[in-house]
Design a protein around this nucleic acid. Structure first.
Length: 638
DNA sequence: GTTCTAGAAC
DNA sequence: GTTCTAGAAC
């Protein structure tokens, strides 16, 4: 942020001649003043990970030096640097502007310089005086807010977000290869970041520029992982809050298989800092741990770690061991090692997610249920009592499900988290390309897997099929017949074996159509699949042909139901019967085609015009739709 | 899938 | 000046 002093801006503008806007002298000064009144400084809460304020040439040069000195694997610590505090000397005439500006934000130029030096390559210190090496201000550190104006509620107090701090697993005493470990960390983090909500993950290491931290940082940057959701932090995991200003409600422990204190490193430190409470609480959850698994332990409120650091849970994780001096050594078998390490992180993050879910619930539940927890410890506490009751399967070992199917063998490089599309996050398009399902595309999948958990959204649960209203209906009646079969993400996954299922889905669709026609005999229905659905898990659209809905908003909406992109269920069934698969018309161009009325085929320039046309168009449907029962209407209507 | 918003189109 | 779309973000 080039934030030059007002005085300088004004004097420059006053001196300037030949301005395109014909501004000179006092007129120019007035304009600058007016503009500066509207000046708003950037804030971290807007989503920046790092802001550097420069007030003169020297600071500009210093910033240029800091950035240009970065190597490919370096990054600058996040935070807000060099912002002038309110009491800086400025021109009297612009005090009004200053009153509006933020209160003194934490000014950290001293630490900043220190860090910049370290990053440019003078980092000679790699000892334990790390506290000072920590990032001075977190990406989301709480900021003094303007006292009035914008709604404060929108501004989250971000150092209070759920945070999991975890050490690098298996890379210390268990001697796991750092290059491989860093790949696995970044890939697993990448997978979980979209599921985190407002929570965040922090890789903690004692030393600022340890090899593993540098590797992870570089790889995370390369994958553009959101640095407010995942970052690295130098410090001791047992004093992140008190010494580093990083509030973490959950920490991970690189545990041993017996879940006992001692040994060295993180395990010894955590058990020591948490006192006997942790050992006892751990024992209640599990006696031992398998490599690749994790166990979530609620930290009793009597534990010093709870009271001092605000840590409510410790998740013990056991990673693979490559050290012949330690139990269960894998003897350099990195195929297995990588798999187990990946499982370990997956289990750890799933454990953390399970806590987040509980927390969400506890926030929305009526509070009396949790009254007996109030008044103790930090308020982001997930009460221990409710954990016991509800977490029933989460409190035992969580082990990763993901490696299922890959068996023990091959998979020499683990460079990408997932390949193939069986039970995974990808779909195969017509041209054999695979594309990932975004986190938002999983909603139907979750409903299919656990329909009873979504009772409110569901119309009917059958043996292998779930019926539900489309969340954003594109017509008066628009329901989905959802298959529950695993690995059946979309039409491309459908084969001969699914023929009966397709027929059944069609029959169930017809049954609902019949019900709807009973309520309104004027409706006309069409049943079919999207060639390339946006939502994962095979679903049949049953949609009335009025397309009278506020949710029908754009070209894609219209064309996905009114071009060849929409595959009529009757045709799909016939094709699968005949060829063992359905034709898929997933050309992008279909979705951006001109807008044509589905009855009279007239073209319309935009959605609002099309919508007003179809409200009144009574022309009979085109011949294609009238054939083969592609349209379903009331028996006695013509 | 939706929401948001810059900028094109009107 | 307003309406509408398209692409990014989520």
């Amino acid at each position: 942020m080039l934030d030059l002093p007002t005085q300088l801006c004004i004097s420059r503008s006053v001196k300037r001649t030949g301005h395109e806007g014909n501004l000179q002298g006092g007129k120019a000064a007035a304009v600058v003043n007016r503009m500066l009144q509207k000046k708003e400084l950037p804030k971290l809460s807007e989503g920046f990970s790092r802001i550097t304020f420069c007030h003169n040439d020297a600071e500009v040069q210093a910033a240029l030096g800091a950035y240009s000195g970065l190597g490919p694997s370096d990054s600058l610590p996040p935070g807000c640097f060099g912002q002038k505090s309110q009491d800086a000397k400025v021109q009297v005439g612009i005090m009004k502007f200053l009153k509006k500006a933020e209160g003194p934000s934490p000014v950290v130029s001293k630490v900043n310089r220190h860090q910049s030096d370290a990053l440019i390559g003078n980092s000679e210190k790699k000892d334990s005086s790390l506290e000072r090496e920590q990032m001075p201000i977190l990406p989301n550190a709480p900021q003094k807010e303007e006292s009035k104006g914008k709604e404060n509620a929108v501004q989250a107090i971000d150092n209070d977000v759920p945070t999991l701090a975890f050490p690098s697993i298996s890379t210390a005493d268990f001697q796991f290869n750092l290059e491989k470990a860093s790949d696995i960390i970044v890939e697993t983090v990448e997978e979980f970041v979209p599921k985190l909500g407002n929570a965040r993950l922090v890789l903690v290491d004692l030393t600022r520029e340890s090899k593993i931290v540098s590797l992870v940082r570089a790889k995370a940057a390369k994958k553009s992982i959101d640095s407010s959701k995942f970052f690295t932090f130098a410090g001791n995991i047992i004093e992140l809050s008190t010494k580093g200003g990083l509030n973490c409600n959950v920490i991970a422990n690189a545990a041993n298989w017996r879940l006992k204190p001692g040994g060295g490193g993180v395990n010894a430190a955590i058990f020591k800092a948490a006192g006997g409470d942790l050992e006892k609480a751990t024992n209640e959850q599990a006696k031992s741990l398998l490599p690749g698994s994790a166990v979530v332990v609620p930290l009793p409120s009597t534990s010093p770690l709870y009271n001092r650091e605000g840590i409510t849970h410790v998740i013990h994780v056991l990673g693979p061991n490559m050290n012949p001096q330690r139990p269960n050594c894998l003897n350099k078998d990195y195929n297995k090692g990588c798999m187990v390490l990946r499982q370990a992180y997956t289990s750890l993050f799933e454990g953390f997610l399970s806590l987040l879910k509980l927390q969400e619930k506890s926030v929305t539940k009526t509070h009396e249920e949790f009254l007996h927890h109030s008044g103790h410890g930090p308020d982001k506490n997930v009460g221990n009592g409710d954990l016991k009751n509800k977490r029933d399967d989460a409190n035992v070992s969580i082990s990763s499900k993901k490696s299922r199917g890959s068996g023990d063998e091959v998979e020499t490089h683990i460079t990408r988290p997932r390949t193939g599309n069986s039970d995974s996050g990808t779909q195969t398009t017509n041209r054999g390309m695979t594309k990932a399902w975004g986190s938002w595309a999983q909603a139907l999948y979750h409903i299919a897997m656990n329909p009873e958990r979504h009772k409110d959204d569901v119309l009917e649960i059958l043996e292998d099929v779930v019926v539900l209203n489309d969340a954003y209906p594109k017509a008066q009646k628009h329901i989905l017949i959802l298959a529950q079969a695993r690995g059946l993400d979309c039409l491309a996954d459908v084969h001969q074996v699914h023929l009966e299922l397709l027929r059944r889905m069609h029959a169930i669709g017809l049954k609902w159509v019949e019900k709807f026609l009973h309520e309104d005999s004027q409706l006309v229905f069409r049943l079919g699949y999207h060639s390339a659905p946006s939502m994962r898990q095979l679903h049949l659209h049953v949609i009335s042909q009025d397309f009278n809905s506020v949710h029908l908003k754009n070209k894609k909406h219209w064309n996905s139901f009114n071009t060849a992109f929409f595959r009529d269920s009757v045709d799909v069934i016939e094709e699968v019967n005949k060829n063992g698969k359905a034709m898929i018309k997933d050309d992008e161009s279909l979705l951006s085609m001109e807008l044509r009325c589905h009855r009279c085929r007239s073209a319309h320039p935009n959605i609002p015009r099309l919508k007003s046309h179809i409200q009144n168009c009574q022309v009979p449907f085109p011949a294609f739709l009238l054939q083969s029962d592609r349209l379903v209407r009331a028996p006695d209507s013509n």
